[in-house]
């Protein structure tokens, strides 16, 4: 049995079991909205909210949900949080909502969120589930920001829309187009492999 409050559930998601680089999960939004840092940050924030919210809720209701219907229940819980984010963002941050587009509602089938609900929140107490959600969410956000920096900086010469490379810099446009996303993540995973941990599964 785990401790009542286990800080490890928070820190694991950040690097050691980073949902993206370690588990190879939730790739779609990671590649699709990483062309600019602003979009990536928005996606990361939405992701942390949904993951933490879903984890807490699943942890609260875990005792009353019979095992055979747990997956539909988890899906409803996640869909609820995703819709909340979707509408709040449309109301308060319309430009961000427009640029995230269909990838925002698609969080509902993101394997990280359903995976954490099933693998962690349905077996742990509320505090640890919340910490796990925060940690995994932050891990995802860090990953998407890392990819976004590597795409926006060479691709447009900017960071968060602010020009850092001089005017004479010719942008390497391929980086902000779809192929750039695949190349960056390929090289990042190779980098992580070279740092010693070779564990890939989907």
């Amino acid at each position: 049995m785990k401790k009542l409050i286990d800080l490890k559930s928070f820190s694991l998601g950040l690097w050691k079991e980073n949902p993206v680089f370690y588990l190879m999960l939730g790739l779609c939004p990671l590649l699709a909205v990483s062309a600019s840092l602003k979009d990536a940050l928005g996606m990361g924030a939405a992701f942390i909210f949904v993951l933490t919210g879903a984890n807490i809720t699943v942890s609260i209701i875990r005792r009353w949900v019979p095992a055979h219907i747990r997956i539909p229940v988890f899906i409803i819980v996640i869909a609820t949080f995703v819709t909340i984010v979707d509408y709040s963002m449309a109301a308060f941050l319309p430009p961000l909502h427009r640029s995230l587009g269909v990838y925002l509602p698609l969080m509902v089938v993101n394997c990280i969120i359903l995976g954490r609900a099933e693998a962690f929140a349905s077996k742990n107490n509320i505090v640890n589930s919340a910490l796990d959600g925060l940690g995994m969410g932050l891990g995802f956000t860090l990953a998407i920001l890392a990819i976004a920096v590597l795409r926006e900086l060479p691709g447009q010469g900017t960071v968060f829309g602010i020009r850092v490379l001089g005017k004479s810099y010719t942008p390497f446009l391929i980086m902000i187009m779809p192929p750039g996303a695949f190349l960056v993540i390929g090289f990042l995973i190779a980098l992580k492999n070279s740092m010693g941990r070779r564990k890939n599964k989907c």
Partner: peptide
């Protein structure tokens, strides 16, 4: 190269 085997080279090919 060893570090590119498996998933990384798959992504680069996809690119």
């Amino acid at each position: 190269p060893v570090n590119f085997r498996g998933v990384p080279i798959a992504f680069i090919l996809t690119g």
